[in-house]
């Protein structure tokens, strides 16, 4: 047996991780329904709690939709690394001779595909319930698609930091929610601008810039956080 001096194949490793996470998630389909169901439920609560008057709802719809979507993504984050940690495969992921930042990026990508994207796609439907002005539906979906990717990246840092803790989920919200405020501001700002017939480009551009920054920095932070917290 000879010592191996180099490891080939980050590509196959990434692909395999994407496929594995997708397969696992699709086999536990029940969990996939939770974030969209939560999103829809929270939106249903607002007319009941505030008022069913369309004008009133329309005025606050962009913010409500964004806050509810943000909380729905938050809800699913706790599970991002937890089951992998419990069965020991997270430890093995950290021992793979591959850049960990790239591997966790693959995991976050699957998470976005299965929670962020569905939320973005169903948001226009819920916008309808809140009498969101026509013309802002596309922006709503686009801003959520962009923003939820950033939310997933930021949230994954918190999920990684709390993965070794028994009751990490409440703490996770405390850690992550303050960091998501810029995404919320520009996300709902874009929808508001669209609803009032204003220029949506600046807010969407800011969401894009945040995503770019998160893509550059968050994977390293997630990887570092996992190395720290996996051993409590």
């Amino acid at each position: 047996m000879q010592p191996r001096t180099s490891v080939a194949g980050l590509g196959p490793a990434l692909l395999a991780t994407l496929r594995r996470d997708l397969t696992v998630a699709l086999r536990r389909r029940g969990d996939l329904v939770n974030p969209p169901a939560f999103f829809a439920l929270v939106i249903t609560l607002f007319p009941l709690g505030i008022s069913p008057v369309p004008e009133q709802l329309a005025a606050i719809a962009p913010g409500l939709l964004w806050v509810a979507a943000l909380l729905a993504t938050q809800l699913s984050l706790d599970a991002l690394f937890r089951s992998d940690h419990e069965d020991g495969s997270l430890e093995q992921l950290l021992l793979a001779p591959q850049p960990l930042a790239a591997l966790v990026l693959a995991k976050v990508a699957v998470h976005w595909l299965l929670t962020g994207l569905p939320l973005a796609l169903m948001a226009p439907l819920l916008g309808l319930l809140l009498s969101l002005p026509s013309g802002s539906y596309g922006v709503l979906a686009a801003s959520l698609a962009l923003g939820s990717a950033t939310l997933g990246l930021i949230g994954a840092i918190g999920a990684a930091l709390t993965v070794g803790l028994a009751r990490g989920s409440v703490l996770l919200s405390l850690l992550v929610l303050p960091l998501t405020i810029p995404v919320l501001i520009f996300g709902s700002g874009a929808v508001q601008a669209a609803a009032m017939g204003g220029d949506v480009a600046p807010a969407l551009a800011m969401l894009g810039a945040q995503l770019a920054l998160a893509l550059m920095l968050a994977p390293w932070a997630i990887a570092g956080a996992l190395r720290i917290s996996i051993h409590g």
Binding site: P3, R4, T5, S6, V7, R20, V24, D84, E86, D87, G88, S89, E91, Q92, L95, A96, P97
Partner: peptide
């Protein structure tokens, strides 16, 4: 890491 195989307490089986 390329030459290591580590098996911990948990088997790491999904």
């Amino acid at each position: 890491l390329a030459n290591l195989l580590y098996l911990g307490h948990a088997p790491g089986i999904k």
